[in-house]
Design a protein around this nucleic acid. Structure first.
Length: 290
DNA sequence: GCCCAGGATCACC
DNA sequence: GGTGATCCTGGG
């Protein structure tokens, strides 16, 4: 992989396939919007970013060499070669890799990911996006983007100080007190950062103590922001696939072990491919439109 | 008006 | 340790 500065941005080549739709609309990330020309823009890590993909390159804007090295390189997980993660992929995984060759698992901001996936419980992608947009508009810091102002994801203190009534009126429903309580926990010292270097199970156990975080949400946070690639979020779709394709049913812990036995250390990345294999050529899991 | 999808929690066994 | 009712909201 190599890159060069160009018109205030960075052009990256040799990354292997990158498909922005399967990155930004597969349910791992809720803050990037598709532009009419197929590019995406949004705010992540307190920075505005516009991304467009060519046949063999990617353009990030605005972006300096320093931004790329310090922020976006790891955000997009550019240093991992997804094509060679699995020694002997089975039929289902192979099919998923064929269908979504440009998929990548992002490394997002942990607090944003935590709150976003608490909101995701009992919810669909269209509504999750709307709720998060309202929270950012109401509680997020303002930053300057190329086309006007944008909003960052709210800081823990701000959500901790928000009233449950206000959080509810943003559309969070019964999850409002969970959001407030979990934001309070983070404000008063619960360290998300320390979970990155912790053993997978230990980190998951810690996350499960937070209000509104169950096994599936914990695995999403571990996989989509904390770099725990063996975290295998088992939603209803994945459970359906495990049953229909492997004849497997079992408890949450048994599912965790089964996924590990099938796919090993990168089980979470396999989960993303399997999602595409199972849902065929359709769009992603969004029934209501993003 | 009714039913459904989507995970976490809580009461209960 | 597992099971089932409940939470909220948009859509069919």
């Amino acid at each position: 992989m190599y890159y060069r500065e160009e018109d205030g941005g960075i052009r990256v080549s040799g990354t292997g396939p990158v498909d922005l739709c399967s990155i930004f609309e597969n349910g791992q990330c809720f803050r990037f919007e598709k532009e009419p020309d197929g590019s995406y823009s949004g705010v992540a890590l307190r920075r505005f970013l516009h991304v467009s993909a060519g046949s063999d390159s990617l353009f990030l804007y605005p972006c300096s060499k320093e931004d790329f090295e310090k922020v976006w390189r790891s955000y997009f997980d550019f240093d991992t070669d997804y094509a060679h993660l699995f020694e002997s992929p089975d039929d289902l995984l192979t099919e998923g890799m064929r269908r979504a060759p440009g998929l990548r698992v992002l490394r997002q901001e942990p607090f944003e990911t935590l709150i976003s996936f608490i909101i995701s419980a009992n919810n669909n992608i269209g509504r999750i996006r709307g709720i998060i947009r309202r929270l950012c508009d109401r509680y997020g810091d303002v930053i300057e983007g190329p086309c006007g102002i944008c909003r960052c994801f709210p800081e823990p203190e701000v959500l901790a100080d928000a009233s449950v009534e206000d959080l509810t009126s943003a559309g969070t429903g019964y999850r409002a007190p969970y959001i407030k309580e979990t934001a309070e926990a983070v404000r008063s010292g619960f360290s998300l950062e320390s979970l990155k270097t912790m053993d997978y199970r230990e980190a998951k156990e810690k996350l499960l103590r937070l209000k509104g975080v169950g096994p599936k949400v914990a695995d999403c946070i571990l996989l989509f922001s904390l770099g725990h690639r063996r975290a295998f979020p088992a939603d209803v779709w994945i459970k359906r696939v495990l049953k229909e394709h492997y004849g497997f049913t079992g408890s949450d812990r048994a599912t965790e072990d089964f996924a590990y036995s099938l796919f090993g250390d990168a089980a979470g990345i396999a989960q993303q491919y399997i999602f595409y294999a199972a849902r065929g050529g359709e769009n992603t899991g969004d029934k209501n439109g993003a």
